[in-house]
C-alpha cells in the first residue's frame, strides 16, 4: 500500500524534474538567456543584476541547480511585455481555463458516458453504429474547424450565441462543446467496451436472476465495475484537453491560459512561455498523480498489485 503511493509519488517528482531540465536545456541552447528573458534592449546594470540573480557567473552545473530551485519556488521572472511577474499574469488566467475545462469535461461525461452505455446495451444495432460513427467523427474533426463552423452557424447565421469572450452562461456553450467533443468521443468508445466486458460477467446474470430491475443492474452493478477504464480515460485525456484549450481559447477569444500561451509564443515573451509551460506541465503531472491515486481508491486490486 505505502509502496504504491511511494512509486507514484517518485514518478511524479521525476517527470517534474525532467520538465524543468527540458526548459533549462531549451533556454540554454537557444541563445543568450539574458537576451531571452530580459529582452534585447536591457540596460547594462539591469543585465548585471540579472546575471547575479540567476547565477550566470557561476559554473553551468551550479546555474542548473539554481535554476531548478527558482523554478520549483515559482520564480519565473518578469514578462517582457507587461513587466510584471510571470506567475501573477498566469494565475489571473487560471480561473477562465479551469471553468472552461470543467464545463467541457461535464459536457463530455454527460454525453459520452450515456452514449457509450446505450451503444453497449444495443450492441450491433443501428444506434450502436450511429454512436460509434459520431465518435469517429469527433476524433477526426479538428477542434478549430468545429469552432469556426459553430461560430458561423450560431453566431453569424442564426445569431443566437456570442462568438467570443466571457461573461454569461451563453458564452460557455460553444467553447465547451468544441473542447469537449474529442473527450466525449473517447469516453463513448471506452465506456462501450468497458460495459461490454462487464455485462458478460456472471454477477450480472446473477443480478438478473435475482430479479434486480434492469436500470438498477446497469447503474449499480455494471457501471461501478466499468468505472476504472472510464476514469483512466478521463485522466489520460487531460493532456488532450489542455492541448485543445490552447486552440479553442484562441478561436473563441477566451481569456484563459491557453490563449495566453499562444500570444506569448507569437510575441516571443520567453519568460512567460517558460513559466506557462512549467505551470501547465506541473498541473498535468499532478492531475495524473491524482488519477492514479483515484484508481487505487476505486479498485483495491490495483494498489495491492503494485
Amino acid at each position: 500500500m505505502t509502496r504504491f503511493w511511494l512509486i507514484k509519488f517518485l514518478r511524479t517528482v521525476l517527470t517534474l524534474w525532467l520538465v524543468v531540465t527540458f526548459t533549462f536545456i531549451v533556454l540554454r541552447t537557444s541563445g543568450d538567456p539574458v537576451v531571452a528573458l530580459l529582452g534585447g534592449d536591457a540596460m547594462p546594470d539591469e543585465i548585471e543584476q540579472f546575471r547575479q540573480q540567476w547565477g550566470l557567473d557561476q559554473p553551468l552545473f551550479v546555474q542548473y541547480l539554481q535554476y531548478v530551485a527558482q523554478m520549483a519556488t515559482g520564480q519565473f521572472g518578469d514578462s517582457l511585455r507587461d513587466h510584471r511577474p510571470v506567475i501573477d499574469i498566469i494565475f489571473e488566467r487560471v480561473p477562465a481555463t479551469l471553468s472552461l475545462g470543467l464545463a467541457a469535461y461535464l459536457m463530455a461525461a454527460l454525453i459520452g458516458i450515456p452514449a457509450g452505455i446505450l451503444a453497449a446495451l444495443r450492441r450491433g444495432s443501428f444506434i450502436d453504429r450511429a454512436i460509434m460513427a459520431f465518435a469517429v467523427f469527433g476524433f477526426a474533426l479538428p477542434n478549430f474547424f468545429l469552432g469556426i463552423l459553430m461560430i458561423l452557424f450560431f453566431s453569424l447565421i442564426l445569431q443566437v450565441l456570442p462568438s467570443s469572450g466571457t461573461g454569461t452562461i451563453w458564452h460557455f456553450i460553444m467553447p465547451a462543446i468544441t473542447l469537449g467533443t474529442f473527450t466525449a468521443g473517447t469516453l463513448a468508445r471506452f465506456t462501450r467496451s468497458a460495459m461490454l466486458e462487464v455485462l458478460e460477467k456472471p454477477y450480472m446474470r446473477a443480478a438478473a436472476a435475482k430479479g434486480v430491475p434492469a436500470i438498477k443492474r446497469i447503474l449499480f452493478h455494471a457501471l461501478p465495475n466499468a468505472a476504472i477504464p472510464i476514469v483512466t480515460i478521463i485522466g489520460l485525456n487531460l493532456g488532450q484537453l489542455i492541448a485543445g484549450a490552447i486552440v479553442v481559447e484562441t478561436v473563441f477569444a477566451w481569456p484563459g491560459v491557453g490563449r495566453l500561451l499562444v500570444t506569448a509564443v507569437s510575441q516571443r515573451d520567453l519568460a512567460l512561455v517558460q513559466g506557462l509551460v512549467l505551470v501547465i506541465a506541473t498541473t498535468m503531472v499532478l492531475a495524473n498523480l491524482i488519477v492514479d491515486l483515484t484508481y487505487g481508491l476505486l479498485d483495491p486490486r490495483i494498489r495491492k498489485g503494485a
Binding site: A243, V273, V277, A281
Partner: peptide, 10 residues
C-alpha cells in the same frame, strides 16, 4: 507525459 503541442510551442 506532456501534450506535444506544449513542447512544440516551447
Amino acid at each position: 507525459s506532456l501534450p506535444f503541442i506544449l513542447i512544440a510551442l516551447t
